[in-house]
Nucleic acid binder design. Structure first.
Lengths: 140, 140
DNA sequence: AATCTAAATAGAAACCATTTCTATTTGTAA
DNA sequence: TTACAAATAGAAATGGTTTCTATTTAGATT
């Protein structure tokens, strides 16, 4: 928790009750959630917090790698807490299809494929997004 | 083009002018596009084609692997033509960030990582979605 | 070629996640 | 304590996507 405060400050963001509550929500659950779910939960302690504020905060905290955005099946936003040792470094996340837990996959195994894919497709690879799905050890 | 007709019939879909025009659109361009873009273009030859019909057809043709869905930066739909030799088999696509061309990456290199990721994260991997971005050889 | 029927469509309207806007409030540096 | 930029509330707008119903159509059957 302390680390997130530092990170917010370092990036010029103020420590508002809304931001702290959102981080607390994710810290407690470690699952990904939609902005609306976050809002409904956080509103229990901060009844006047607006949904637009939640959207704004989620996006800001994603930008500074406190949160990570998860691609769900539906065309909407999902966020989860990023617990990587070095969140700024390129890495991936895997989410549990049962309990929605998010975990880090700190190694990226794809760099080595760049050359092979380039030879086969003629594309120079500039980026990739990998969305892993699985079942976590508690749900198995 | 002939192949798409067969595939539609085999899956119980009728050969409507709308479906043919949508496939023609993608065949000519080989780029991905939003439903709205498809609609605006196809409407030039079929002025009465509605946007909901385009949405319906895109989704239907995605289901039978004529089209592939591409994840763009914005939270909306993108579709492209799938030219894989065996579209039913698991594979990936790479899209050019300049011209939006879509190409197939028929080998999936990730199966071999399943075991390694399982050991590190405790997750049993059940699926993945890989979105590759690059610059195609014509745009380099 | 004419008939039939389930599938497909048009057009309008609804839906709803997300964003924008403006007046007001608040965190924090001085 | 004050000052001010940052952040917020609340309402409203936006716009991509879906739903709805009456009508039309593709393709099978005769």
């Amino acid at each position: 928790m302390r680390g997130y405060r530092q990170k917010l400050k370092k990036n010029g963001f103020k420590l508002t009750p809304g931001r702290e509550a959102i981080i607390a929500f994710f810290s407690g659950k470690n699952h990904y959630a939609t902005p609306e779910t976050v809002w409904k939960e956080v509103r229990k302690s901060l009844p006047r917090l607006g949904l637009p504020t939640v959207y704004r905060n989620l996006e800001q905290m994603r930008k500074i790698n406190i949160l990570t955005q998860v691609d769900g099946a539906e065309n909407r936003f999902y966020f989860g807490l990023c617990r990587a040792k070095n969140p700024g470094e390129h890495h991936h996340h895997i989410s549990c299809q049962k309990c929605r837990r998010v975990s880090e996959v700190e190694n990226c195994y794809l760099q080595s494929l760049t050359k092979e894919i380039k030879e086969k497709t003629g594309f120079q690879i500039t980026g990739h997004k990998l969305q892993l799905t699985g079942v976590c050890k508690d749900c198995r």
